[in-house]
Amino acid sequence: MNRLTIEEFGNDVCDVQPHTLEDYESDIPRWCKGCGDHGVLLNLQQLLLDERIEPENVVAVSGIGCSSRLPHYLRAYGFHGVHGRALPISLGVKLARPDLNVITVMGDGDCFSIGAGHWLHTLRYNVNILVLVLDNGIYALTKKQASPTSPQGTVSNTSPFGSYLQSLNPLSLMLGISNMSFLAQSATWLPTHMEATMRKAWDHKGLSFVRILQRCPVYMPDQFGVGSDLSWSFLEDENGIAVDPALTRRAVVKQHNPRDLKAAQQVALRESPSPMGLLYWNPDLPTYEEVRHSHAPALEQDEFLRRLDDLMDKYTVHSNAGAI
């Protein structure tokens, strides 16, 4: 018997045209030269291609900001919403249509500032979505205002004498939220690591939160230091994200068990270098949509009408013949 590979079966028997990267491309991205967003988009397109996800089954939801333009450049069902509110929309999509693949893309201001309430709560709901926060520590689209993750002292248009506050540490904050199930961090200048991180996130069933550090070439060209000043650390584990040996020569590598929440919290509290890798991973938590749908199975029309009839009976006044 002639055994077919899945590709052969798809192409020859089902006459399904193999996808190419082009099938996931929409408009030409309008991001600045040198912006890390280009790399994120490419990784995402490659990931969807490799996972054989049909574009029509992808919903990409974003807020407002440079990074939130991503749905315009991905050939999928994109929803470019309002500032800070991508997560509620994503939750709604996934809750209504658990069959769809939902990707949420936000910037640091969108997620950690105006969207903070939704950020904390959506993590706890643990809907099975991929969440990418492209953190460049600045509001770039609105032309340079300090964001919660801007380093203290950042000179911006609303802080011309330097920003006043210590920057927010979103990692330690997230690791304090009950029911959260996946937290990883990477950077756009670590393309292999970023790709591996996104794949790991994709494979996780639950809310996969990935913070991707990036440096805005226009407004924050000196962030993270210059040239060889740049230091970083990696988390390593058999369940973690593979680290390129070439990079480890200049970086601190720490063994970290991502199943260990307390260890993760300790790691997250380290100010700098902010660790790259899989901080926390709990594959055993149920997702919100599976819990909700398990109690609300869809009905056939006849059964629906019958139950509706029963329900209305409860409110129907059965009139009393022979009243006064």
Binding site: V59, V61, F79, G81, R85, L87, P88, I89, S90, L91, G92, V93, K94, L95, A96, R97, L100, G117, H118, L120, H121, R292, H293, H295, A296, P297, A298, L299, F304, R307, L308, L311
Partner: peptide
């Protein structure tokens, strides 16, 4: 009673998240 009819009541974290989820739901066809 909604679950008995295949429906879900979602209590969101605030009013804005509530309408956001409804928008996401209807956008997706539900």
């Amino acid at each position: 009673i909604f679950e008995n009819f295949g429906g879900i009541v979602h209590q969101a974290e605030d009013e804005i998240a509530a309408i956001g989820a409804a928008l996401g739901g209807y956008y997706s066809g539900v």
